[in-house]
Design a protein around this nucleic acid. Sequence first.
DNA 1: ACCTGAACACCGTTCAAGT
DNA 2: ACCTGAACACCGTTCAAGT
Lengths: 231, 231
Amino acid sequence: MSLATRSKRTESRPALSRDRVLRAAIEIADEGGIAAVTMRRLAESLDAEAMSLYHHVANKEQVLDGVVDVIAAEINEAVGRLTLPARGAAWRSAARERILTARRVLLRHRWAAALFESRSATSPEVLLYFDGLVGIMRDGGFSNDLAHHAMHALGSRAIGFSQELFTPGAGPAAGEPDPVLAGMAGRLPHLVGMLAEVMHDDPDSTIGWCDDQAEFEFGLDLLLDGLDRRR
Amino acid sequence: MSLATRSKRTESRPALSRDRVLRAAIEIADEGGIAAVTMRRLAESLDAEAMSLYHHVANKEQVLDGVVDVIAAEINEAVGRLTLPARGAAWRSAARERILTARRVLLRHRWAAALFESRSATSPEVLLYFDGLVGIMRDGGFSNDLAHHAMHALGSRAIGFSQELFTPGAGPAAGEPDPVLAGMAGRLPHLVGMLAEVMHDDPDSTIGWCDDQAEFEFGLDLLLDGLDRRR
DNA sequence: ACCTGAACACCGTTCAAGT
DNA sequence: ACCTGAACACCGTTCAAGT
């Protein structure tokens, strides 16, 4: 039994490492959401005991911080392949492409946006991403002051997602009318009138509780236009 | 003993109710953050047992959904006192004032913004808030289609907060330079150059991980200006 | 150095029992 | 109808012990 366990560990399982722990966490989150990532399940997926993880990460908080960093590194790898001019007026399309590329990565890990927001620790890879975006703005002629305002104005949009508090048409079964909204339709004349007129035709292309691609781009362009005007 | 417990309950404690549970949850969150809200602590603060709560709320999820609704009701009470014209060009200042009023309520409950985002259930009070904002836009001459785009573009900014992924100058001790950023300054030329130039003078007026008041208003005005131009 | 089992202090929630 | 104690199935984490 002890022999079987030992042979299993040494033969069929690579040694544990911080990196392997983080990648296993991402795999679990991709399958069952971020709440499915527990130390015990994480260990199980690595064919180890929960307590073994603590030799490679300080605690669960550090696992989640590390996951953010790995996803941000994936974003940096993707935007690193972009080769767009950013001098002068070209800054706008360079920034736009960078942001939409980041968004494409986040769409592969739908739980990631919520995690990015909930973490307060500074991720080195997120810093590198932002540094590149500031660089594009500086190339475009932004003052440091305007670039700073711009980063705040973009907020989470700078890295490809945006927060929605209410996603019209995203009821229990997406695409269905929201039952709460339907139940109080009489007290919501403007909202009901608006939604009745604008038919949502692709309610599936959402990133978590965030807006869909077309709406994301509308908001992004609104901000980029305003910034370009102040440049 | 059983008698003492009984007299304590009937004399010094009002009967439990959904409303009292939710208000107790808000009190606990105001003091110790949203993570401090557990069913056991909630019950204790109400001088009851954890299991008694389940006669008034289905589960903890419903407690958190209810808390969002109570905070949104507080926002609606505040914006309900506003009496601003919204016809034509006045829509902009009416919308601006409504949003900044909502923000003032959220600043009283610093944990609330994060909670608003993490919940997917539709809050009736949030719907009422949005309905009023759409009404202001319609008064201002927005088509339903543009009002719809506008709500998505504003995102969480519509209700007074915005998501930051990295708050410059908000290290462990707020106001201190970020140690992670300091450690990799050489690889972040644009970010470090920018932050060196723009001195942050009031790092305290933040709403959780969100930007401070001046930055919030800059981003809001950028969006409102862009929407006004498309009106 | 790396890994583990048992144990601790918490969670949310079910259930059967009290008044 | 409302409340409760004991219990269950989970958590993250500490500790002492193994190799």
